[in-house]
Design a binder for these strands. Structure first.
Lengths: 106, 106
DNA sequence: ATTTTGTGCAATCAATTGGTTGCGCTTATA
DNA sequence: TATAAGCGCAACCAATTGATTGCACAAAAT
């Protein structure tokens, strides 16, 4: 079973869950209230998030609060780094093209 | 069929393809040489990438070069923005904690 | 003109996914 | 102590995925 951040964020419901618990740790039930789906469905998504280490369960009495693990979000950011370099380079190249066009305009 | 960038990058082979064509547009055959899988498997991944608008096919004679669409990579970056804010805040909070600890040390 | 090369497309298959239902356990509440 | 609330887990199901195989077709090369 492949379990990484990229699989964690592949599902839109999971992305929404991540966004919610990023603001504040939440229980499965309180999360489920935000969606048009069952508590069990949310629980399954949470299970995947825990396996991917994107969410961390913290038991508190009979409730379980799921917290976000920001490190994993940073992993995505790290992967994006390679592209950020490229798109900045391309932007600069485009800039040069525009400058050349300007020069020819005169 | 859900087709967005997040699904595009969910698969590790697809992430590798994206990284390759980000450097330089490539044909399915030349891409397949980089993997231990068949040309058809790569073609299928490319098809998904095209549907997600992460890759753009450019026919050139009988060859088809697949280019990256950086816009879509930026979409991921944009989604990450919300978390970036949070992790910076938390970092600042941690900073304050450290300052407080320092003060108490004296 | 014939063969080879580069590719897409359809059929097929096993594995995975997202979801449901039912059950059982533990912790609060009445 | 009995009941309710908050969960996880296992079984099950339809839909999707990743990969293979076989075929067709157009563009180069011979």
């Amino acid at each position: 079973m492949r379990r990484d951040v990229f699989q964690a964020i592949a599902d839109p419901t999971r992305r929404a869950i991540i966004a919610l618990i990023a603001m504040q740790a939440m229980t499965p039930n309180s999360l489920a209230e935000h969606f048009h789906t069952s508590r069990q469905a949310i629980s399954k998504h949470l299970q995947i998030l825990v396996e991917c280490e994107v969410a961390i369960p913290k038991q508190q009495g009979r409730e379980i609060y799921y917290e976000i693990e920001m490190k994993k979000m940073k992993e995505i950011d790290k992967w994006l780094e390679q592209f950020r370099k490229i798109w900045e380079d391309r932007f600069n190249q485009l800039d040069e093209v525009l400058i050349t066009l300007k020069k020819h305009k005169r």
